[in-house]
Amino acid sequence: MMGLTPYLILSAILLVLGIAIVISKRNAIAMLIGVEFILNAATLNLVAFSRHGIGGLSGQTAALFVIVLAAAEAVVALAIFLNFYHTIATVDIDQGDQLKG
């Protein structure tokens, strides 16, 4: 069985990727994907820690909750983006320039 380290490295890569996407992209859908990267990094962490005997099963249970949260958030976010698209016909967040100051 592999040790904990590879999982943590993968999760760190996911986190960094996620943050990079969120920072660099201006497309709302892409940003949402970046957020999912971060959430999946967290999920991976939880499962990996739990699997290696830290804190029993609660980590894996928590991972389920995180997946549900991510799904719920995606639903709401997509609905809002759709509405944004309907009104402004773009999903580029920077194109929204009604709110300034």
């Binding site: 709302a28 957020v35 990094a41 962490n45 995180v66 976010a77 809002i80 944004f84 009104t87 967040i93």
Partner: peptide
């Protein structure tokens, strides 16, 4: 629409970081 989109992006990032 714009305010909500900005809010949700910002919120999603922050909450993801918190969960991480």
């Amino acid at each position: 629409a714009e305010g909500a989109a900005k809010y949700v992006v910002f919120g999603a990032v922050c909450s993801a970081l918190m969960i991480y």
